[in-house]
Simulated scan of single mutants.
Amino acid sequence: MSTTKWVIDPTHSEIGFKVKHMMFTNVSGKFTKFDASIETEGDDFENAKIHFTGDVESIDTGNNDRDGHLRSADFFDAAQYPEIKFEATSFTKKDEGEYTLKGDLTLHGTTKPVTLDAEFSGQMKDPWGNTKAGFGLNGKINRKDWGLNWNSALETGGVLVAEEVRLVIELQFIKQ
């Protein structure tokens, strides 16, 4: 069985997240600079080797002041920890088109295991003859597990920024 390499198509991929603000609305953001690759045996994605890196400086929530705060030592500390990394430890099929992706997420100088739900959208050729594969990933992490502890108490009780971060990721890969 031969090894197949897949590289990310960044123009058709998005690394997004949502966090509750003031305990009742979501703020969405994304990373605009990232890289990812997959190595498979043939065209079967089960047990694939998956690698991801993201540029912390590229965080974008649609608000320059908030993005600057997120890059600061209060949150990501981009100067000291400029990169987010993910290395898959397993990619196992649950059902048709449904997988569980487990791996190690390195963020803010800390590496911890995470589990994400993965939906495999399938493969197809684009108009230029490239074989593409699509995936949707969803999951939750607690930002405090990676030392992102900053918060502010609200007068009405509760906190300004939730601990739970929902990951919403859409990926398209190109077969090499």
Rank of each mutant, 00 (worst) to 15 (best):
F91G: 01
I141R: 01
G136C: 10
D74R: 00
K112I: 00
D35L: 01
I169K: 07
E96D: 11
A133R: 04
G122L: 01
V168E: 13
S72I: 00
D104R: 12
T53H: 09
F52T: 06
I38L: 00
S152A: 15
D77L: 02
S2F: 15
P82K: 05
L107W: 02
S152V: 13
D145R: 01
G122V: 06
I84S: 11
N149I: 09
K102N: 11
L116R: 00
E87S: 15
D55I: 08
F34K: 01
N142G: 05
V161M: 07
T61D: 00
F24P: 09
N149H: 09
D35R: 02
E155C: 09
V56E: 06
L70G: 02
F173P: 02
K102Y: 11
E96Y: 04
T40K: 08
T89V: 09
T110R: 07
K125D: 14
S28G: 11
D9S: 12
E164W: 03
S90R: 04
L107K: 02
K85V: 15
T92Q: 13
W146L: 00
D117M: 09
K33M: 07
T53M: 13
I38F: 05
E87N: 14
W146E: 00
K112M: 07
A78T: 01
P82G: 04
W128C: 04
L116V: 04
G29H: 02
E170T: 11
S13V: 07
L101C: 01
L148I: 09
K30E: 08
K49T: 14
M1L: 14
K175T: 05
T11M: 13
K140M: 09
G42K: 03
G68K: 06
E155F: 05
